[in-house]
């Protein structure tokens, strides 16, 4: 009975996480570029490392997203020589990208840092 319950719980959790992660790529991508300009391989490694493996992204989908964001003027790139030969595109946030990230954090992330929510987030449930 307990195994059944924990399986059900795990399934629910996974379903919630799948929905929750769907919109997160942009935030992780912007954070990667906020740290410093990066090429796609570095962006991917940053996201996987910093999200502790919870966000996995294919390079192809990163390229597609970066191209879209470039057309929307939120990111741009410089071509530089990589360590081993071919030119690489090093992406960075434009002023518009930085402003959007800053506003997004202000409106959607910082609210989790108020004392009341911090307490709720990190305290054990009563029941």
């Amino acid at each position: 009975m307990n195994t059944k319950k924990s399986e059900f719980q795990e399934e629910l959790l996974e379903a919630w996480e799948a929905s929750y992660k769907k919109g997160q790529l942009t935030l992780w991508l912007f954070l990667a570029l906020k740290e410093k300009e990066k090429y796609v391989g570095e962006i991917r490694a940053f996201i996987e490392e910093q999200s502790q493996g919870t966000i996995i992204c294919e390079e192809q989908s990163l390229y597609r997203t970066l191209r879209k964001f470039r057309n929307l003027e939120m990111v741009d790139f410089n071509e530089q020589e990589g360590n081993k030969g071919p030119m690489r595109k090093y992406y960075y946030l434009t002023a518009l990208g930085e402003a959007i990230l800053e506003q997004f954090i202000e409106r959607n992330i910082k609210l989790f840092f108020n004392e009341n929510l911090q307490e709720l987030l990190f305290s054990k449930s009563i029941s």
Binding site: K22, G23, T26, K68, N71
Partner: peptide, 12 residues
């Protein structure tokens, strides 16, 4: 749309 992209799909 923004720059040809459907708004709802930009950050998907």
């Amino acid at each position: 749309r923004m720059n040809g992209y459907v708004k709802e799909e930009i950050f998907e």
